[in-house]
Amino acid sequence: MNYDWSWRFLFGPSLTGEGSYVVMLMHGFGWTILISLTAWLIALAFGIALGVARTLPRGVLRRFATLYVHLFRNTPLLVQLFLWYFVLPEWLPKAWGDTLKSMNLVLNQVLTVLLCLSLYTAAKVAEHVRAGIASLPAGQYRAAQALGFGVIASYRHVVLPQAFRIALPPLTSELMNVFKNSAVAMTIGLMELTGTSRQVSEFSGHPFEAFAFATLGYMLIALVAARVMRVIEARSRISGATQT
């Protein structure tokens, strides 16, 4: 294959006039991290609430959470993103829709991606939390109640601390999924890492170096995320419990 492999082009000035290609790529890397972490925090909070709601006795909350999780887990992420980006402004009252459309383009994209990614991930988090709670022996909840804890206190002090420990490994891979899923942002024009590498590949004529850069970026993220979660797992391990 006659491919002119060269890393040097990265430091040359970019055709877009935003400094060098490497600066462009680093900006993309920054966006990926920023939107992923923010979406993760929102998804974690909302997902835990949903997961708990799914284990409550029958009622409106439980029905809502079940329906929510089903809808968001059973449509493609890209379809959800297009619904938020293209369809939502048309459905909102005209004044609101116009505000969205006249908003700063990048801000509009970032908010849309955050909304989409958090709501999508929250459904996944909810499933892991629910499964964690379901795998606890029912005796734990009953014991908490027998000690006089109310429903909220039982969850807060007895059920959730144990359910989290069980749910930690699947939550770790969910965290990595957020970073990977954030790549869909490029389809509505937000230049995160994958989108930037695509752009650089077109402008510079060096597609493989650009994709290699992005690939290394994602591998670095996966490595760090796995390390951090392992530390959390080790710190939260219950003494005397068998490792699984």
Partner: peptide, 16 residues
């Protein structure tokens, strides 16, 4: 490797 890279990026790799 394939589990840490977004599918979109894999598609680009193969495409090019």
């Amino acid at each position: 490797f394939f589990r840490s890279v977004p599918l979109i990026l894999t598609i680009f790799w193969v495409f090019f």
